[in-house]
Design a protein around this nucleic acid. Structure first.
Lengths: 220, 220
DNA sequence: ACCTGAACACCGTTCAAGT
DNA sequence: ACCTGAACACCGTTCAAGT
C-alpha cells in the first residue's frame, strides 16, 4: 500500500499514455496516487528524475533477448520490438531526446545489442556503425509515425482535403500526386514502410560485414 | 519597428537556441521583444501556433535546391543539409514530433524531395519508400546526436567515468569495451557516423531503383 | 521514515480596457 | 489596429512542520 518509486512510475506511464506527456504534472500524478504532490519529492529528487525513470522503464518493455546464432534475425526482432514499444508509448519518443543520463535498463539493453554484433564477429568499428544506423532508423521512424496526424487512408483523405483546400494550385504537385494516387489508395499504411527500410538497412549492414570478413581472410 | 510575426519568430528562435526550447515562455519572449506577453496573442492565436511557425521556419534554413540530373547526389546533399540544420537547432528536433499541421515551407520542402525521385523515374511506391527511410534516418540520427551528453572523446572519457563508477562490474561489458577501445580513441566523433549510414541507405535505395528499372525493361 | 500545508516564483490564456 | 493590466487556473519546488 505504501508509496514507492515503482508505483509512481506506473501511474506516470498510465497518465502519459492517456493524456500525453505534456499534461503529466506533479500535481495530477499525485492526485492519481491519492497523495499530495509534495510527497513525490520524497521518492524522487525532482520531475526530471521521474521522466528519466520513465525512459528506463520503457526499455524494460522491449520484448527481446539477443540470439547469438543469427545476428541479422535477432537485430531485426529487436528493432521490430523497439518500434512496437515506441509506437505504443509515444511519450517515450518525446522523452528520448532530452534525457542525458541513461538508466540501468537502458544501458543493459544497449550492451546486449552491442554484444550481439561483437559475438558474431563484427569489428568495433562496424559495430558502432551498425548500432548507430539501426537506432537512427528506428527512432526516426517512430518520430515520423508519431507526428503523422493520421494512420489509415480514410483519415489521410480527410486531412489532405483540409491542407490542399487553402493552397495555391500546383504549389505542391508531387505531394498531391503521391497523396491521391498512392497514400489514399485503400490499404496503404505508413506503418508498412517500416519493414522495407529495416530490411534495406540490415542488408546494407550484412554487405559491409561480408566485405569486412573477406578482407580479413585475405590478410591470412 | 512595429511588431510582426516574423520578428516574433526570429526572437523565439534566438531564445530557443540560447536556453533551450523548454525555457521559451510567452513572458520571456515578450520581454526580449520589449512588449508585454499579451501582445503576442494579437499576432498568434496561442503558443502552439508560434511553435508551429518555428518548425516551418526551420525548413527555410535548409540550404538545398533539388538537382534533377543526379537524384543520389542531390538527395545526399539535402540530407546533409537537413542534419546540419537539426544539429544547429536542437529545438527543431524536439518540436518535430509534436507538430500536426505542416506549414507552407514544410510542404514545399517535402514536395521538392518527392519531385526529385519522381522526375528521376522512381515509381510512386519506391518514392514513398525512399522518402520514409531517408527522413527516418536523418531525424533519428539527429535525435541521437541531440541526446548525446557529449561529443568529443575527452568528454566521453569524463562522462563514462561517472556512469561506470557506480555500476556492478561486468554489468555492461560490451559498452565498456566499445567505450574504452573505440569511442574514447582520439579523433572519434559520433558525427562522422552520419555519412556511413547515409551512404548505406542511399546505396540500398539505388539498388532497389535499378531492380525496378530492370523489371520494367523486362516487361517491354 | 514518510507525508503535507503554506508559500514562492513561475506558467498560458482571457477579457475588458486603453490608445 | 495594436497593445496592455488585472485576473484565473494552472505549474515545479522549497521548507518547515506534522505523524
Amino acid at each position: 500500500m505504501a508509496l514507492n518509486r515503482e508505483k509512481i512510475i506506473v501511474a506516470a506511464i498510465q497518465l502519459a499514455k492517456k493524456d500525453g506527456l505534456e499534461s503529466l504534472s506533479m500535481r495530477k500524478l499525485a492526485s492519481k496516487l491519492k497523495i499530495e504532490a509534495m510527497s513525490l519529492y520524497y521518492h524522487f529528487k525532482n520531475k526530471d528524475q521521474i521522466l528519466s525513470a520513465l525512459v528506463d522503464h520503457a526499455f524494460k518493455l522491449i520484448d527481446w533477448k539477443p540470439d547469438k546464432n543469427n545476428w541479422k534475425t535477432s537485430a531485426r526482432d529487436r528493432c521490430v520490438s523497439l518500434r512496437k514499444v515506441l509506437n505504443a508509448n509515444p511519450w517515450a519518443v518525446s522523452l528520448l531526446d532530452s534525457r542525458r543520463n541513461p538508466g540501468l535498463e537502458t544501458l543493459k539493453h544497449h550492451d546486449q545489442m552491442l554484444g550481439l554484433f561483437r559475438q558474431n564477429g563484427f569489428s568495433l568499428k562496424l559495430t558502432a556503425h551498425a548500432y548507430a544506423i539501426l537506432d537512427s532508423y528506428v527512432f526516426g521512424f517512430a518520430v515520423q509515425e508519431n507526428s503523422l496526424p493520421v494512420s489509415n487512408s480514410d483519415d489521410i483523405a480527410e486531412m489532405s482535403e483540409s491542407i490542399f483546400s487553402d493552397m495555391p494550385p500546383d504549389f505542391i504537385p508531387h505531394m498531391m500526386e503521391m497523396t491521391m494516387n498512392y497514400y489514399m489508395k485503400p490499404g496503404y499504411s505508413f506503418a508498412a514502410e517500416f519493414d522495407f527500410g529495416l530490411d534495406l538497412v540490415l542488408d546494407g549492414i550484412e554487405k559491409e560485414f561480408n566485405e569486412e570478413r573477406q578482407y580479413s581472410k585475405e590478410l591470412i
